[in-house]
Design a protein around this nucleic acid. Structure first.
Lengths: 113, 113
DNA sequence: ATTTGTCATCGTAAATCGACGATAAGCAAA
DNA sequence: TTTGCTTATCGTCGATTTACGATGACAAAT
């Protein structure tokens, strides 16, 4: 029962949190960077580029896929992972909105009380 | 031994992941929004605004504070929470960098392989 | 057909998370 | 000082996460 209460929040808040959570591990950040820079693509390449075992990398990829950030295409015996353009656009919007929600900097008064 | 391997990643990757992780829960997203919009500030107000118990909200605040996103000032018997300007700027930069790392949209070829 | 290589899944173990009530610690008012 | 309000911390519970090796599934090569 770690989180039944999630339903009590906005859909946008849940989506934002889900995306942030998916990015909430250094390995997954690294994977997204590798994919973005096209330095790696096939699962095996990612395994070589990361200090983790094959099964662990596969699990991280599964989570990124579940969050809609990544997309996997089977290519023969291999699987090519790409960034999911639509999902990434949503992430950009949701996280961007959240980041923009605070007036850039010390624009207003620093203290709230 | 859930994550000894974190040390194997870049400092930037770890920081990015830590910030994303802190935002990886709807309650904490909601708290950041409430603070950003100055709709609430004192811990008690946050508790009223959220469908969670006082101790749970306190714990979420603790995590946000640990991530450097939030700052708490004692004001008599109450505690006023504000967004940590410096930490938030760092979050903006790190997450912004990550989001920008992918060429905006369908600029390049959609497939990688 | 057998072997090899690639990837996903299963099972497992330790650690962490999310949530709560209960309790402590602090200040403010009576 | 005693009472009451506000917040933090403790202890606990089940659920989830992270990680791994082992095993399975499937394509390609021998």
């Amino acid at each position: 029962m770690a989180s039944n209460k999630r339903e009590q929040f906005t859909a946008a808040q849940q989506q934002t949190a889900a995306i942030a959570k998916a990015l909430g591990h250094p390995a997954r950040v690294a994977i997204m960077q590798l994919l973005a820079q096209r330095e790696a693509c096939v699962c095996g390449e990612l395994v070589l580029a990361l200090p983790l075992s094959q099964s662990t990398v596969s699990q991280h990829l599964k989570e990124l896929k579940a969050a809609g950030l990544v997309q996997g295409e089977v290519d023969g015996a291999r699987v090519c992972y790409c960034i999911d353009v639509a999902g990434w656009a949503l992430a950009r919007q949701l996280l961007g909105d959240l980041l923009a929600e605070l007036p850039t900097a010390t624009a207003g008064p620093t203290n709230c009380c």
